[in-house]
Design a protein around this nucleic acid. Structure first.
Length: 206
DNA sequence: AACGGTGTCAACCGCACATGT
DNA sequence: AACATGTGCGGTTGACACCGT
C-alpha cells in the first residue's frame, strides 16, 4: 500500500513495529516528524505516533473493558463529552482510540437505547446534559499555575502511560483551571458524583 | 460449505491549537 | 502581529473476524 508520495499506509508489519519501538526507546517520545527518518520507516509521523500510542507503548492494557471502567467512561463522557484523550487519561492503560472505539461500538448503543426510552417519557427525568465543548484543560501562558514549570497543555496525555503518571488529585491545577473556565462551567449541569469520581472537590462557583 | 450481514478495531484524514520566528 | 511549522485530537473509514442463514 503506497500513497501518492511513496509513504506506506495500512496495517503495520512486525518489522515496522520493531523499528519504531527501537527508535522511541532510543530517542524518546516526541519529535515525531523525525521519527520516520530516524527509525528508517516509510511512514508519516502521524502514523508512527498513533502506532506507538495505541499499540506499542508499554503498559497498554488490551482486552475487554471492566465494569468499573465502563462506568467511569460513561460518567466522564457525561461530563466531558467526546474528549476521549481526557477520558482515557483516567483509565490506566487505555488509549483514547480504545475508549472511542468502545464507546462507539458498545456504550453509545446502550445510551441511545436508554435515551430513547427516556424520550418516550419526557418530563420528570429529562435532566438536560449539556456536553462540554470548551477545550477544558488548555491554559493560557498567564495562568497562575503555569508560572511554575507546569506543562502548558494539561489536556495532553501525561508522561508515562495512562493515568498512573498523573499527578494526584490534590496537586492538580483544578483551581486555576476552574478559574479560567468558570464561565463555561457555570453553564453546566451534571452529576455531582463526577467530582467524587475524579477525586477532587467541586470548584466553588460564584 | 458458501454467502451475506454485522461488529470490532486499527489506521487515516482533516482540523485546531501551541509554539517558534 | 503575522506567518510557518509541529503536535495532538476527534471523526471517519476500511479490513478483517465472527455469526447466522
Amino acid at each position: 500500500m503506497k500513497g501518492a508520495i511513496g509513504v506506506r499506509k495500512g496495517a503495520w508489519t512486525e518489522e515496522e513495529d520493531v523499528l519504531l519501538k527501537k527508535c522511541v526507546e532510543k530517542y524518546g517520545e516526541g519529535n515525531w516528524h523525525q521519527v520516520p527518518c530516524r527509525a528508517g520507516l516509510n511512514r508519516c509521523r502521524k502514523s508512527c505516533r498513533l502506532r506507538w500510542l495505541n499499540y506499542l507503548k508499554p503498559n497498554i492494557k488490551r482486552g475487554a473493558f471492566q465494569e468499573d471502567e465502563v462506568d467511569m467512561i460513561i460518567r466522564l463522557h457525561k461530563l466531558l463529552g467526546n474528549r476521549w484523550s481526557l477520558i482515557a487519561g483516567r483509565l490506566p492503560g487505555r488509549t483514547a482510540n480504545d475508549v472511542k472505539n468502545y464507546w462507539n461500538t458498545h456504550v453509545a448503543k446502550k445510551v441511545d437505547h436508554h435515551k430513547s426510552k427516556e424520550d418516550n417519557h419526557p418530563g420528570k427525568c429529562a435532566t438536560k446534559v449539556s456536553v462540554i465543548r470548551p477545550r477544558p484543560w488548555t491554559f493560557t501562558k498567564s495562568s497562575a499555575w503555569l508560572k511554575g514549570k507546569a506543562t502548558l497543555v494539561a489536556s495532553r496525555a501525561p508522561p508515562g502511560s495512562g493515568s498512573e503518571g498523573w499527578p494526584d488529585a490534590n496537586s492538580w491545577p483544578w483551581e486555576s483551571a476552574m478559574e479560567e473556565r468558570q464561565k463555561g462551567w457555570n453553564e453546566l449541569s451534571f452529576d455531582a458524583n463526577i467530582w467524587e469520581l475524579l477525586g477532587v472537590s467541586p470548584p466553588a462557583i460564584t
